[in-house]
């Protein structure tokens, strides 16, 4: 008799699906045949050695890679069944928000930082804006710390606060998916844990994909884990994808085992 885990599993609708997705920087193939399905309202962590294409894949999901002229892709990435590469890119980025490695608030007031996205999408009504800013800051667990200083520059906040401001800024455009590229790597441990807790709360409303080079963080903060590695020609592929509890206790692949137990290379 095999005894399985005690955790309940609720099947989620799939939100993002990559099918035979390839990506090239000029002649260099950075991603090879990526196939993966990410469920809605879940947190998917992407881990793997550096340079194996984690960020590249993440940036493919909101087409930020297109800012680099040499990038070519093939295969498809579907969101709610629709190919994102045939959608309008501005619309897509409204639905798929992004938080970066280093906190990057604009040199504007806290209020204007959060209101930036909604304003860009045409929201002018002051009352609605104020409400939205408050809700976003509250959801990003920052409201109580800044509610009296909304006119202060976002750059005057601490690193951890800045990162939460950036999360609030992303939330304010009411996306469905939030991509995070090593969002806590520039933060101290307490700020890091705050962000992780925050992410747990956010998954009720959003689907979250987070790149991290911190294995413990992936184990703590995610529901699913995607392990990337690269072939000898340095192109990245998915070694294994599964529930985080399985990946970190009983991975199927030797490469995963070696990587997560720190015996890689």
């Amino acid at each position: 008799m095999v005894i399985t885990s005690l955790e309940e599993k609720k099947p989620n609708k799939s939100k993002i699906i990559a099918r035979n997705f390839d990506l090239f920087y000029g002649d260099f193939q950075a991603l090879k045949d990526i196939n993966v399905t990410m469920p809605q309202n879940s947190i998917t962590a992407i881990i793997g050695p550096s340079g194996c294409g984690k960020s590249t894949f993440l940036r493919s999901i909101n087409r930020m890679n297109e800012l680099i002229p040499s990038v070519k892709t093939s295969g498809e990435i579907l969101m709610d069944g629709e190919d994102i590469y045939t959608q309008d890119v501005v619309e897509l980025r409204k639905t798929v928000g992004m938080v970066f490695q280093r906190p990057n608030p604009f040199p504007k007031s806290i209020f204007d930082n959060v209101a930036y996205g909604p304003r860009a999408h045409g929201l002018k009504n002051k009352n609605i804006l104020e409400e939205l800013v408050e809700k976003s800051l509250t959801d990003a667990a920052l409201w109580d710390e800044v509610k009296d200083d909304l006119h202060k520059s976002g750059l005057a906040l601490s690193g951890g606060q800045q990162q939460r401001l950036c999360i609030a800024r992303a939330l304010a455009v009411e996306p469905q998916v939030i991509l995070m590229d090593e969002p806590a790597s520039a933060l101290d441990p307490i700020a890091t844990l705050k962000i992780e807790e925050l992410i747990q709360n956010l998954k009720k409303e959003y689907t979250i994909v987070i790149v991290t080079h911190n294995m413990q963080q992936a184990a703590r903060a995610s529901d699913y884990t995607m392990v990337f590695n690269m072939y000898p020609d340095r192109s990245g592929y998915i070694v294994e994808y599964g529930e985080t509890s399985q990946i970190f206790t009983n991975p199927r692949e030797k490469t995963t085992e070696d990587y997560i137990s720190g015996r890689f290379g």
């Binding site: 294995m215 413990q216 184990a219 970190f248 206790t249 009983n250 991975p251 995963t256 085992e257 997560i260 137990s261 720190g262």
Partner: peptide, 9 residues
């Protein structure tokens, strides 16, 4: 040491 996988088991 925060072991994972086989080490953890």
């Amino acid at each position: 040491q925060q072991p994972f996988a086989r080490d953890l088991r």
